[in-house]
Simulated scan of single mutants.
Amino acid sequence: MDEILRTIPHRPPFLFIDEIVEVREDGATCKRTIRMEEPQFEGHYPGNPIMPGVLLCEACFQTGAIYLAKQIEKEGRSLNDVTPVLSRISDARFKQMVKPGDEITIEVTMDETVSRFFFMKAKVLKGGKPAMTIKFALAMVEGEGK
């Protein structure tokens, strides 16, 4: 958890990554265990809790931000100089429900870079099978909000 907190600015209760599994040349893989005590389950289908799709998307965005932060570190730049900002979402597809007790694996792969925009695709796996897929872009914004 400490490595995650050093790498991206997100903090509980809006941190949806538990573990960095690996950071590759072309992407990153993280894991998350969905816990019943998370606040979204008080209102998202009480009695039949389902992880909100938008929060699964956020886990993908955070995994993408981890990948980009690690690339910045490799370049010798400071993580304090940039903030990952979502700039595009497309083609989100939800294939199975994620519920408390499930462990998910988030796999993000870099597609292309255009200027300061990083286009990525991601999949959330539950039990080795896709629970969702999405394409998105992040921008690493320098100096804003610091």
Rank of each mutant, 00 (worst) to 15 (best):
77 R>H: 14
79 L>K: 01
69 A>W: 02
109 T>H: 13
62 Q>D: 00
72 I>H: 00
85 V>C: 04
71 Q>T: 07
109 T>G: 13
87 S>F: 06
105 T>L: 15
80 N>S: 10
85 V>S: 02
67 Y>P: 01
68 L>Q: 04
61 F>D: 05
106 I>D: 00
73 E>Y: 11
65 A>M: 06
69 A>T: 05
93 R>I: 04
108 V>G: 11
65 A>E: 06
71 Q>C: 06
106 I>W: 00
63 T>N: 01
102 D>A: 03
64 G>N: 06
107 E>M: 08
109 T>D: 13
102 D>K: 02
61 F>W: 13
61 F>E: 09
105 T>E: 15
70 K>V: 05
77 R>W: 14
87 S>Q: 08
91 D>Y: 11
67 Y>F: 11
91 D>T: 10
106 I>C: 00
102 D>L: 04
60 C>L: 14
92 A>T: 15
62 Q>K: 03
69 A>H: 03
79 L>D: 03
70 K>L: 03
104 I>C: 08
93 R>N: 05
86 L>F: 05
72 I>M: 03
104 I>P: 09
109 T>K: 14
86 L>N: 02
70 K>D: 07
79 L>F: 03
96 Q>M: 14
80 N>H: 10
83 T>M: 14
62 Q>G: 01
107 E>P: 02
83 T>K: 15
75 E>T: 14
66 I>K: 00
99 K>S: 09
96 Q>Y: 11
87 S>Y: 06
101 G>R: 04
60 C>T: 12
97 M>K: 14
